[in-house]
Structures are given as C-alpha cells and as structure tokens.
Design a protein around this nucleic acid. Sequence first.
DNA 1: AAGAGACTCAACCGCCAGACT
DNA 2: TAGTCTGGCGGTTGAGTCTCT
Length: 305
Amino acid sequence: MGRNASCQQKQKLRKGLWSPDEDEKLLNYITKHGHGCWSAIPKLSGLQRCGKSCRLRWINYLRPDLKRGTFTQEEEDLIIELHAVLGNKWSQIAAHLPGRTDNEIKNLWNSSLKKKLRQRGIDPTTHKPISEENMSLTNTDELSPTGAYADNKCTATCSYKGTPVDMFLLDDNVPNPLSNISFPLSSHGFEVSSGFGYDNPIPSIPSVVHQDSSSESLGFPNVANTIWCDMRQDGSFFDSTPLPWLEEITTNEGDQVGIGTGIDMGIGIDAECIGQSLSLPIEMQNHRVSLFDDSKGLSMTQQLF
DNA sequence: AAGAGACTCAACCGCCAGACT
DNA sequence: TAGTCTGGCGGTTGAGTCTCT
C-alpha cells in the first residue's frame, strides 16, 4: 500500500518487539517534547522505527496513565455491556475504561469474554441467547433493534413489525417496576434482564431463577424481550413506587435476571408482551408507551426517546 | 520430562477519513 | 479537484507462555 510508504522506507526500519533501550529513547523524547508529529519522532528520537510503530508503542505500553494488571469483574461487565451497544468499536469502548487501551480490550474480548458469553448461552456477536427456547413469547425474530451509545447518552430505535416502539429513557418520575416484584411466581415466560451498565443480582431472587448469582446483561438486542430497570450509581432505585400488577410477571428457570446500574439508561419494558400476557390494555405510540390496569386504578407511561 | 495444542498479547497490516497542498 | 500525508482504527498474526496428556 502506498499509504504505508512512511512505514516501509528504503532505509531499514526495525520491526517486532521493542527493546528496553528503544522504550527508553521513546519515553525520554515524548516526556521532554511531547509526541507532536508521530512521523517525525523516529528521526528526532534516534529510533529506527516508523512513526506508526512509535505511536502504537506509546499508546499501548509507555503512556504513564495506563492501568496495568488484569481486568476487574466490573470492567469485564462494562465491556460486555458496551459491546452489546457499540459492537467492535474498541476505541469507543476503551474511552469508557480509563487506563485501558483498545488493543487490550480487543484482546480480552477475543481471548476471554467471547468464550464466557458462549458458556452463558449468549451469542457474543448479537448478545442474544443462543438457544431460541430462551426467548419468550414475543416474536422476537421480527424485532430489529439498533442502538448507539456516546457521551453518556443512549440513543436507540427498535421496530416491531415495522412499527418503531419501545425504547425509552427513564423519566425520574416513572415508578421502578422491579422494585416490588416477588420471585418466583407462575411463569409467563418473561425474561428480566439488565439494561445498560454494571449488573447486580436482585437480592430477593432465589437461585432457581438463575443458578449463577451474577446476572447476564443482554442489552439492546433484547430490549423487546426484557424488562430493564435502572439504578442510580449509588445503588438506589430511581423510584420505589410499587406497581402491584407487575408482581404477576415472573421468570423461567434459566432466564437472566439483573438490574442495570445505569449509565443514563432507563427502563425498557416490552409493553406489548406484558400487555398480552397480563391481558392489560396497552397503547403504543411513537413517543410514549402506556400500560393500564383499570381494575387496580394503575397506569404507567414511559416516554420514548 | 517432553511434545502438542491452546491461549495470550504485543505488534503489524491494510484501510479509511480528514487535513493539507 | 486530485493527489499525498498522517493519524487512527479494527482485523490479524505469530512468538512466547501455559496447560494438558
């Protein structure tokens, strides 16, 4: 590639692993002068490397703000959450993990996280359950959700049978539907999953619901199949107002149950699914979703994006 | 102990977009 | 407008290490 001419000079440039001596030269130069123009650095610092190689070495190894060591469980969970939304946008994912590089995250994903997800029965590409039996009673294969995450703001659209529905940001005034659910009840085949963020198990959920104490996060691709619940960063719920009729929602053994500790993500409820199963009237519009239970005098409205 | 296979991770490759000429 | 340069990105590679038999 002609574009790579700068890295394939006539003069012999070193390749492969960096020696301590080279590291020192690069570190000393950048510490003194900053990196400036990367392509000029090899000459100025006395290295026989191409500028790209210097840049990579600095970003992935020499930068002083790098966090060393193995990833924490929280970091791994966050990567999975972010990957569900962003896909293989490693640099964007890395932007949410201070001190971690895109290369490091990519390696972790390819060597470890993909495998872990598969072991949990989740397709690492789609973040959907691998087994279709895990899917609930909605026609989820007709759903086509897409999502994006940037600057701590989630944007998403989700269409169902051609109708754009069902992605919401939490309105702080909207009651948290999971706050008063007792588990387990008779099964409606619902899956309760986390939204976006770190996951914590719901303490009251018995192990029969999910053998593993940690919850699985399914993220956007399963939005219409899940209930999302948001917590503040300090662990408190946005609202603990009970919605008694939601106590009728249950999970199957093996379903994933979790709570997202939000990153500006809110409640998502598969309103149609809930409405059908509970025989509740439901209204879906482009800008809000409402559930009603007139007999109990309850209603819940969520604003869409 | 040794060989094979699996795994990890640093580094390279090729492509792209934006800036510059 | 077209060509070139540069930085940045995601995919891939391969050497080194680990684990298993």
